[in-house]
Computed example of a mutant assay.
Amino acid sequence: MSITESSSNYNNLDKMSVRELLDHINREDQSVPLAVQKALPQIEALVKEVVERMRQGGRLFYIGAGTSGRLGIVDASECPPTYGVPHDWVIGLIAGGDAAIRKAVEFAEDDEEGAWRDMEPYKPVPLDTVVGIAASGRTPYVIGGLRKAREAGLLTGSITCNPGSAVAAEAEYPVEVITGPEFVTGSTRMKAGTAQKLVLNMLSTSVMVQLGRVRGNKMVDMQLSNHKLVERGTRMIMDELGVEEEEAARLLQAHGSVRKAVDYYQKRDARD
Results as ranks from 00 to 15, higher is better:
residue 150 R to P: 04
residue 112 E to M: 07
residue 74 V to K: 11
residue 91 I to C: 01
residue 50 V to L: 00
residue 23 D to M: 03
residue 3 I to H: 12
residue 255 H to I: 05
residue 234 T to F: 11
residue 84 G to Y: 05
residue 52 E to F: 11
residue 118 D to E: 11
residue 4 T to N: 13
residue 134 A to T: 04
residue 54 M to N: 02
residue 33 P to N: 04
residue 76 A to R: 11
residue 26 N to D: 13
residue 3 I to A: 06
residue 133 I to S: 06
residue 93 L to K: 06
residue 1 M to L: 12
residue 132 G to I: 10
residue 175 V to D: 01
residue 127 L to W: 13
residue 10 Y to G: 01
residue 271 R to E: 15
residue 224 L to V: 09
residue 160 T to V: 03
residue 156 T to P: 01
residue 95 A to F: 09
residue 34 L to E: 11
residue 190 M to A: 00
residue 63 I to K: 04
residue 182 E to M: 09
residue 259 R to F: 15
residue 265 Y to F: 07
residue 78 E to L: 07
residue 41 P to L: 03
residue 207 V to A: 02
residue 264 Y to A: 04
residue 198 L to N: 09
residue 222 M to S: 06
residue 137 G to H: 06
residue 193 G to D: 08
residue 238 M to T: 02
residue 24 H to A: 05
residue 251 L to C: 03
residue 90 V to L: 10
residue 80 P to F: 14
residue 244 E to C: 04
residue 189 R to A: 11
residue 201 N to K: 01
residue 215 R to C: 10
residue 86 P to E: 09
residue 35 A to E: 02
residue 154 L to H: 03
residue 101 I to C: 08
residue 238 M to D: 08
residue 60 L to F: 14
residue 27 R to W: 07
residue 134 A to V: 13
residue 19 R to E: 10
residue 108 A to H: 07
residue 13 L to H: 14
residue 29 D to I: 02
residue 124 P to V: 12
residue 81 P to V: 00
residue 108 A to R: 05
residue 44 E to W: 05
residue 246 E to Q: 02
residue 172 E to Q: 02
residue 120 E to A: 07
residue 53 R to P: 09
residue 70 R to T: 09
residue 179 T to A: 05
residue 200 L to Q: 05
residue 240 E to S: 07
residue 215 R to Y: 15
residue 87 H to G: 06
